[in-house]
Each structure stands twice: as C-alpha cells, then as structure tokens.
Simulated assay, not measured.
Amino acid sequence: MSNFTNFAIRYEYERIAELGDKLGEVEKLIDWEAFRPFLTGLYSNNTEKGGRPNLDEILMLKMLILQQWHGLSDPELERQANDRISFRQFLGFPDKIPDRSTIWAFRERLSLSGKDKDIWNELQRQLDAKGLTIKKGMIQDATFIHSDPGHASSDTPRGEEAKTRRSKDGTWTKKGGTSHFGFKLHAIIDREYDLIRRVCTTTASVHDSQIDLSEEGEVVYRDRGYQGAKCKGYDATMKRGARGHPIGIRDKLRNERISRKRTKGERPFAVIKSVFTSGTVRVTELGRVRVKNMFSAFSYNLYQLRTIEKQSL
C-alpha cells in the first residue's frame, strides 16, 4: 500500500471515528501481543504444510473476532475486511487481507491443536489483571447454537453414518415442545461485571445439568434444570416440585431470590445472538463449533469490557 493511499484511508477513518466506532474502542482494551506466543506455536512445524504463515498471527486472531462479532461466513468476512474502513483499522491497516481459505485453515489449526483454550485463558488473565476478579458469585446457563440439519429429521443418524456433511456432529433435542438441532454453548458468568469467565461447547442433546463450570468457593446460581446436579461451588440452584409434591413457600421465596440474581445471565447470550447474529453456525464438527463459540464469548467480553470502561469514566 502506498504512503498516499495509507494516509487517505486513515484520514477517512478519522471521520468515521467521530461518529463512533465500537471496534476502534475495543481494540485498545486488551494487550493483543500477549496472544502471540500461543499463536506462533501453531506453526512450529517447518515442513511445507506446517511452516510459518504469510500473514501476521494477531491479524488472523482479529479476523476471527470480526467474524463472530458480525456473524459472517468466511467469504463474507474476506469481502467486508477488504471493503470496510472500520474493519481495516481494527486489523491495523494491513497491506494484505487474508482470503477465505487462509481464514478457514487458521481456525482449523486452532480446533485441532486446542490453542483456542490458551487464547481464552490469556483473555481471562488479562481481565483479572484489570481487577475484574470474581467477587459476588457466578451464574451458569446454556443456550442453543443452531446448525443446519439439511433435510434430516430428528430420527436421522448423525456422525459417521450421516448422509450430509452439514449434520455430522449436531444432535436433536426438544425443549418446551420445540425441536432444536445443533449444539449448546454453556457459560458461567460473573454477576458483578457480567463477563463470561468459562465456556464449554456440547451437542444440543447434552442436558445442561451434565456440565459443571463452577469452582470451589464460588456461589453458583442455576435454574431448575440443574436440580440434583452436583457442583464444585456453593449450590444456589432453584428448586422444582414433582408430581404430587409441590415446593413449599420457603422454596418459592428462595427461587424468587435466585431468579433475581440470575437475570443478568441472559444478557451475554442475547448479545451473541441479537447483536452479533452468531446464534447459528455453518461448520459441522464439534471442535470447529467450540472455536467459534469461544470467539463469540471472547467478542462479548470485549463488548462488555467497553461498557465497564465507559461506566468508570
């Protein structure tokens, strides 16, 4: 990119920034370079297929943030990153934008290596370093991340027996009389700062109560679906009655108190689905969905961190 072109683009961005640019604001909130050691490790193999990438690793990381923030496919991410000045500013005005194949390959390396977990842990370390440590308990909940089942019905086999790649790992389940196909994002959220602190991805048929994201010493607020499920933290789970054995007034009042404390737990999922439009996935395997869900949660934390910073001014 010529110096003149670079100057012109940056000048145009200044006009956009005056109108408000969330991406420009969140880009300054964390230390991006701290993620480089984990990403560089993806390319430790110096063979023809495993050598160093042509593009900066932090650039690739930010591309995946943009993808989940805006609910984009790989081709659309490539197009918009070339087209939108706010995207290019977030990426640091690179000379070259990664193409869709490079984006897919980078995300696949994260999935196969498990390095997405290192990225998530580094983000959590930075949140703690800002003083945003857990103080008032946690809220655990889960939400459906839908996938395309193709023409398959709920009794069509999945996995290796599936006839379509689109439905390889997704599973069917029913909630409230409505069928859902795909996956689940389980999360535990800090009540004080509304930040997602731990995540887990499963197929849709895994019951919420089978996943415990709590840690010892934490108060964990959970809805009725978790009744009877053990947790490592202090169990603040809502009670539910059984046929012929309704809950008493004390349990009803307790449920009301827990319900009020749990209301914040819906916000992260609402942002991920309504603001980021990332409530559906086009990828087909559990590992790939895990990476996408992690970046959705990562993006939400940046979104919430911006809110916290503004409130502190």
Score class of each variant (00 low, 15 high):
Ser2Gly: 11
Tyr13Ala: 03
Tyr13Asn: 03
Ile16Gln: 05
Ile16Ala: 00
Ile16Thr: 01
Ala17Asn: 01
Leu23Phe: 14
Gly24Phe: 01
Glu25Asp: 15
Lys28Pro: 00
Asp31Met: 05
Trp32Phe: 15
Arg36Glu: 13
Leu39Cys: 05
Gly41Arg: 05
Ser44His: 15
Thr47Ile: 05
Glu48Leu: 15
Lys49Thr: 09
Gly50Ala: 09
Ile58Ala: 08
Ile65Val: 14
Leu66Val: 04
Leu66Trp: 03
Gln68Lys: 14
Gly71Cys: 03
Ser73Asn: 12
Arg79Glu: 07
Asp83Met: 06
Phe87Arg: 02
Leu91Asn: 05
Arg100His: 15
Ser101Leu: 13
Thr102Met: 03
Ile103Trp: 00
Trp104Cys: 13
Ala105Arg: 15
Phe106Glu: 04
Phe106Ala: 09
Arg107Ser: 05
Arg107Val: 02
Glu108Asp: 15
Leu110Met: 12
Lys115Trp: 10
Lys117Pro: 04
Asp118Val: 08
Arg125Thr: 12
Lys130Arg: 09
Gly137Phe: 01
Met138Ile: 04
Gln140Leu: 05
Ala142His: 06
Phe144Gln: 10
Phe144Asn: 10
Ile145Thr: 06
Gly159Glu: 11
Glu160Ile: 14
Ala162Gly: 11
Lys163Ile: 08
Arg165Thr: 14
Asp169Arg: 12
Gly170Cys: 12
Thr173Cys: 15
Lys174Met: 11
Thr178Cys: 11
His180Ile: 10
Ile188Ala: 07
Asp194His: 04
Leu195Pro: 02
Ile196Met: 09
Ile196Arg: 01
Arg198Cys: 05
Thr202Glu: 12
Thr203Lys: 13
Ser209Leu: 07
Asp212Val: 15
Asp212Ser: 15
Ser214Phe: 03
Val219Gly: 01
Val219Gln: 10
Val219Pro: 00
Tyr221Gln: 02
Ala229Phe: 07
Cys231Leu: 11
Lys232Thr: 12
Tyr234Glu: 14
Arg243Ser: 12
Pro246Met: 05
Gly248Thr: 15
Asp251Trp: 09
Arg257Asn: 05
Lys261Ile: 10
Lys264Pro: 01
Gly265Ser: 10
Glu266Gly: 11
Ile272Pro: 04
Val275Asp: 12
Thr277Lys: 14
Ser278Asp: 06
Val281Gln: 03
Arg282Gln: 14
Gly287Phe: 06
Val289Leu: 02
Arg290Asp: 12
Lys292Asn: 07
Phe295Asp: 00
Phe295Leu: 02
Tyr303Gly: 00
Leu305Pro: 02
Glu309Gly: 03
Lys310Val: 06
